[in-house]
Design a protein around this nucleic acid. Structure first.
Lengths: 180, 180
DNA sequence: AATGCCATGTAACCAGTTACATGATTGC
DNA sequence: GCAATCATGTAACTGGTTACATGGCATT
């Protein structure tokens, strides 16, 4: 399971409360690993028992107190251990592909409008990655060494969205050709 | 959930036993939706209660008897209903991306060899899709209408693998550049 | 007065994985 | 004799989702 490790990576970058983590999992890290706050709290509890993280209470005025979690030495060890084990190749799982495959038994127009929606979502996400890259890595040829990982992940997202758009376009073209 | 619908699509193409379905989910359909035989039997049971499929026992000699499932009218209705509802856009979830992101706290060489492994897997899969396309759709400009869905799914897999390779190559290049 | 942010959780449920179980036939 | 294929399941567990719960402060 990788949520533990995603949290460890996030905490290794900067200590945070469960709430903070939940917001990070809505944004940057969330682009390739989603997690709800409920699940984050649950996993943080387990990680604390495992001594991978430790919490200290931060009292605040005007807003609720919070528990700020920091990665421990053991947490860093675990991160290193995990990093050096091969990552299992995750299976694709696309409900949309199932729908396409069942085109003969389904509603062609609905699938068509589905493709358009998906294409638009890919375009939006691509623009986001593009803006993000322009902001953080204006010169891709000289990315700082400690930013390389984050940069490459961004590139991965970018490529993913590009190919998503390319697929949608092929589908739209095939549908268009069939209707004429 | 889409396993029900993946099974419905598969049974709409051709009636099958749970065992047959499990094999289909190892091959063609399995490229975008995996399922174990245990889970298939479980879901088939539920689908039978829901009247989406019906089973009849086929006695065999020399091998165990089997229950062959066929899609019902209600099953086809459900397939049509599902087809015409928008497909939720599934979140990416990549353990490998998490690992890349945590490169600063991990083992660079291990990640490097991981990339190489993944690239090789993408190449193998791409070759499979290529061979499959050459065999079933020798002339892509004239794909029969009832094969369009399956063809486009294959194209999606192809594009996916291609972009996976492109990402791996970018990572390898970045790593190489950093080491020189 | 209502909405949204900050902050942390519990409980019930669901989909999917892993381990275990059985038993006959066919091919090496 | 051993492994693979055919064929169908049960049981325990895990990861994740959805619904529910609480409560103060700041903004509109």
């Amino acid at each position: 399971m990788a949520l533990e490790h995603a949290i460890l990576v996030s905490l290794a970058e900067k200590s945070a409360s469960g709430y903070d983590l939940a917001r990070r999992f809505d944004a940057s890290i969330g682009h390739f690993w989603k997690a709800s706050h409920q699940q984050i709290y649950k996993v943080l509890g387990r990680m604390e028992s495992d001594k991978w993280v430790e919490a200290h209470l931060v009292e605040q005025s005007g807003r609720p107190d919070k528990k700020v979690y920091a990665i421990t030495g053991e947490g860093r060890d675990e991160l290193m251990r995990w990093s050096s084990t091969p990552t299992p190749i995750e299976a694709y799982r696309s409900e949309f592909a199932v729908k396409l495959r069942g085109l003969n038994f389904g509603d062609r127009d609905a699938v068509l409008s589905d493709v358009r929606t998906r294409r638009a979502a890919h375009v939006t996400q691509l623009a986001y990655y593009e803006a993000s890259a322009a902001k953080h890595y204006p010169d891709p040829s000289t990315v700082a060494d400690d930013e390389l990982g984050a940069y490459l992940v961004l590139r991965g997202g970018f490529i993913q969205e590009q190919s998503g758009i390319a697929w949608c376009d092929e589908i739209l073209q095939a549908f268009g050709a069939a209707e004429r």
